[in-house]
Simulated assay, not measured.
Amino acid sequence: MGEQETDAAVARARLRLLAAEFTTPRATRRAAAGRRTPTTAPREPINLDILDHLTKSTREIVDYTREVVPDADPPPATAEGIYGWMVKLTPHLDVDRQMVRDAIIHRQALEHAIAMGDKDVIRYEECPGCTCWSLFWRYGEDQAACVNRYCADQLGRPSLWTLQQIAEHYVDVKYAARKAAT
């Protein structure tokens, strides 16, 4: 299994978990002892933000694949097969476009984990600035902060990185290692 397939498998597994666990109808809790005032509007049966995230992620994969392979086969009916479909149709691309593809897959894998509430996934990513393992997710800012004091800006504030920047750095390191091995 190649590196692209491994990264795609991680993204696929996270997407499957996100779709299975976070878009199923929520269980309603029964009222505790005593009376409770009923609400006038019912709750959404699923988390609509997650549903929007899944739709946006799938659309991005389909759009990029169709951009680089205009005569591509139709995408799979299920969202889980979308990453394998993308990798299968794009092995012939030049290195720059393969790097863009891999960065999209890696970024989306991170987004899926964060959407599920797994903010610790950022700690396993290398900082694009200092290449250390000191990234922490900043709640509410949708960015990771490097807490290495040598990676701070001139005012002593931590350097901030978007998921796109982290994914691009990950892919750059992966392709540099592959190039050095040949």
Results as ranks from 00 to 15, higher is better:
Tyr175Thr: 00
Leu160Val: 06
Ala176Val: 03
Val147Trp: 15
Thr58Trp: 06
Val10Asp: 14
Gly129Leu: 07
Ala115Met: 15
Ser134Gly: 12
Trp133Tyr: 08
Lys119Gln: 13
Glu21Ala: 04
Pro42Ala: 10
Gly129Pro: 07
Val10Met: 13
Thr55Gln: 02
His53Trp: 14
Gln98Leu: 12
Lys179Met: 11
Tyr139Asp: 15
Thr23Ile: 11
Asp71Arg: 11
Val87Tyr: 15
Ile50Ala: 04
Tyr150Lys: 06
Ala167Ile: 05
Gln164Cys: 06
Ile104Asp: 05
Ala9Val: 09
Arg36Cys: 13
Thr6Val: 06
Cys127Phe: 01
Asn47Arg: 12
Gln165Tyr: 11
His112Tyr: 10
Val173Asp: 04
Val147Ser: 10
Arg43Ile: 08
Pro38Thr: 03
Gln154Tyr: 02
Cys146Asp: 09
Pro128Tyr: 02
Ala152Cys: 06
Thr40Ile: 08
Arg30Val: 14
Ala11Arg: 13
Leu110Cys: 05
Asp120Gln: 12
Tyr139His: 14
Asn47Asp: 02
Ala176Asn: 07
Arg29Trp: 13
Ile82Arg: 00
Arg43Phe: 14
Leu15Cys: 07
Val69Asp: 10
Ser134Ile: 02
Leu17Cys: 02
Gly81His: 01
Thr37Glu: 14
Ala77Met: 12
Pro91Leu: 04
Leu18Ala: 06
Phe22Pro: 11
Arg30Asp: 14
Ala72Ser: 02
Tyr150Met: 00
Ile61Asp: 06
Tyr83Lys: 10
Arg107Trp: 07
Ala33Asn: 00
Pro38Lys: 11
Ala11Asp: 13
Glu125Trp: 05
Thr23Tyr: 00
Ala115Arg: 14
Ala33Phe: 04
Pro42Leu: 01
Gly140Leu: 04
Ala152Asn: 10
Arg29Leu: 04
